[in-house]
Each structure stands twice: as C-alpha cells, then as structure tokens.
Design a protein around this nucleic acid. Structure first.
Length: 193
DNA sequence: ATTTTCAAT
C-alpha cells in the first residue's frame, strides 16, 4: 500500500476504514518460515457501495481457503490490523481457529475498536481460543513499513506521539485481557471461602 | 481529560 494510506490508517488519526496486512509462515523444525506469495493487505469492503459490506477480518478469512494450506503442516497466520476485531469478527475468527487446528493466529492491532458493546469480551474470547493478541509496537510498525508499504525509499520514522499512542493502547488491551484472570481469581476466591 | 470507531452527513 502507499505510504499515506499506511500512515492514515495505522497512525494516530482515526480512520473510518480498516486495513489488514497479513503474512503466512509454515513451521520448519522449531522455526517459522515465510510462505512465498502468501503475503498481502486488504481493506474492508463495501464502505462506499453499501453493498455486501464486510469487515476486513472477514475479507481475510475469505482468502484463506484459496491458499490450500497443507493440513499435514503447521502454519502461523499473522495479521496487522488498523482496528481490533469487533465482537462478531472475533467470534468468526474463533470459529475459524476451531475448524483449522493446523493454523495458529497472531493479531497485532494498531488500536482498539470500542464502538460495539462486547468488544472486550470478543477480544478475551479470541485470546481464550488460542490467538495471540497484541498492540502493534514500533517493531511491528517497522516490519509492516518494510514489508507492505511502497515507501519509495522513505524510512519509517516514529514520532513521540506514536509511542505515546502505543503505550496507551497496550495499557487498554492489558486491562481488557487481564480481566479474564481477575474473573478467575475472583471465582476461585469465592469458591474457596 | 478525552468525544472520535470496518460512515454517514
């Protein structure tokens, strides 16, 4: 994607669209090797047409079957997404993982999508189903910049603002995901009394 | 301190 699109969607400004970059790796021994050609990005569909609207995660899931991943191998799918999955998409991703035991999922989000009720629960369920969930740090920003962005030789330069943003989003995600532990601890405390 | 959100005015 072009540099402006990346900055507009993964940066600090709020976007009314969602971009998702993905890459596929296959397990070789105890290492992950990139799968040639299975790397790309997409945008949510239907924002301008009001027709067949589809969140970016569902566009992503639509593509997976066409890759014909070998069920005898283990794969790791990594998504870098500008908004974290909404509850519905989280549920779809959970189902996808349940149906594809040869695939593990990592999701790095640029920011947390809090518009819909139940977004926290959705993220927890996603983690609970075995997905790795994290906020994009500078490391992921640089990786995406180098991998998916047509930077035309431009170097990725993070601003202080971005680092503050990352810190805040990480804190929020941590609080959301930690609530699982808090709930479990609370339950066990009650049951032991 | 924090409204914003995979649009709709």
């Amino acid at each position: 994607m072009d540099a402006t699109t990346f900055k507009d969607n993964f940066g600090i400004t709020w976007a009314n669209e969602t971009y998702l970059c993905y890459e596929v790796e296959v397990q070789e021994g105890d290492a992950w090797a990139p799968v040639e050609g299975l790397q790309g990005f997409l945008r949510n569909q239907g924002a301008d047409t009001h027709w067949k609207r589809s969140h970016a995660e569902l566009c992503f899931l639509d593509r997976v079957p066409s890759w014909h991943l070998d069920e005898g191998k283990q794969y790791r799918l990594t998504c870098y997404i500008s908004w974290s999955p909404c509850p519905d998409c989280a549920q779809k991703l959970v189902e996808f993982m349940g149906e594809n035991s040869h695939v593990s999922l990592r999701i790095f989000a640029a920011r947390i999508y809090t518009k819909l009720d139940g977004h926290e629960d959705g993220l927890r369920k996603l983690q609970d189903a075995g997905a790795q969930l994290a906020i994009m740090t500078l490391k992921e920003y640089e990786h995406c910049w180098d991998t998916f962005v047509d930077s035309q030789g431009q170097l990725f330069r993070a601003r202080d603002e971005l680092e503050v943003h990352i810190g805040a989003q990480c804190q929020r995600l941590e609080n959301i995901l930690r609530a699982i532990l808090a709930a479990l601890l609370g339950a066990s405390l009650f049951s032991s009394v």
